[in-house]
Design a protein around this nucleic acid. Structure first.
Length: 275
DNA sequence: TCTTTATGGTGAG
DNA sequence: TCACCCTAAAGAT
């Protein structure tokens, strides 16, 4: 459940059953966290918040649960009762009178005084959340023009949570494809029009992914591919994971590269190198 | 049963 | 740039 849109959707599901409710029982699977269970037990959840890929569960008495799913974590929400049969390790269980929110496999979990969250090492350094309603394309465009980001390649900038929080490897590839920009371009070399185009694509792709639970392709195309029998995982993206296949836009072959230990995808024709 | 891979992140050099 | 941490599933043997 890795990138910003997926985390925000998980937060929505948890919020639906926890917000306004008292958490009657708390269980932590990690020994180092067990002492915090009494801190949260018996208190009301005020709401869920996401900051990039970090998820915060806020309690009325001024405490918050921080969790980051990294690559592996996954939240499940269910009616209170028997826990599902699974090989995954249960790391957090929050039970209200009627429901349970269960976090499996994640390892980056901690309990904080809400007022001290700003000091969290990850939260302290991340940039604006891509799904924040307050984030406009103009803010992103302005950020792209800032001196501290100017000499960075877009490929690197778009994985840097200090630039924008919530973008991960698939959003990076899909956003840069949507903007028609070569990932090797440097932020400072973009023209005004290109910055605007990239900023709008950043919001559009992120929001679409949130709304569709991760399907970046437009509905018509996604529907056609579904009728052709492609499994869901194979009909989500324009370029991510599609190396060797024809680009949906131009028919050219999607290419795969390696950069910083992460896979990077690009359609050379739709995202031409700078002249 | 092993090795590899992954939509993530940190810290050393 | 690289090694490493983390966990689970998929692939190779």
């Amino acid at each position: 459940m890795p990138e910003g849109p997926e985390i925000r959707r998980a937060a929505d599901c948890i919020e639906a059953v926890l917000a306004g409710e008292i958490v009657e029982a708390v269980r932590f699977g990690l020994p180092r966290l067990r002492r915090h269970a009494p801190t949260l037990r018996g208190h009301r959840v005020t709401g869920l918040e996401t900051r990039g890929k970090a998820l915060l569960t806020h309690f009325e008495h001024g405490w918050s649960l921080y969790s980051h799913n990294q690559l592996y974590g996954v939240w499940r929400v269910q009616r209170r009762g028997r826990l599902p049969k699974t090989n995954r390790s249960l790391r957090v269980a929050l039970h209200t009178a009627s429901h349970s929110a269960l976090l499996y496999s994640a390892s980056d979990i901690s309990v904080w005084r809400t007022e001290e969250l700003a000091a969290h090492p990850f939260l302290a350094r991340i940039g604006p959340d891509i799904l924040s309603p307050a984030l406009s394309w103009r803010v992103i465009a302005a950020r792209l023009g800032e001196a501290r980001f100017a000499r960075r390649q877009l490929a690197d900038l778009y994985l840097d949570q200090a630039f924008l929080a919530g973008v991960g490897n698939y959003l990076r590839a899909e956003i840069l494809f949507a903007a028609g920009l070569d990932p090797a371009r440097r932020a400072g070399d973009l023209g005004r029009g290109e910055r605007g185009r990239l900023a709008r694509a950043t919001l559009a792709v992120s929001r679409r992914s949130y709304e569709t639970a991760g399907i970046v392709l437009p509905p018509r195309l996604a529907g056609r591919l579904e009728r052709e029998g492609l499994p869901r995982e194979r009909r989500r993206f324009f370029v991510f994971g599609r190396d060797g296949h024809p680009c949906y836009r131009c028919g050219g072959e999607v290419q795969r590269y390696e950069r910083g230990g992460r896979r990077l995808y690009r359609c050379p024709a739709c995202q031409p190198a700078a002249a």
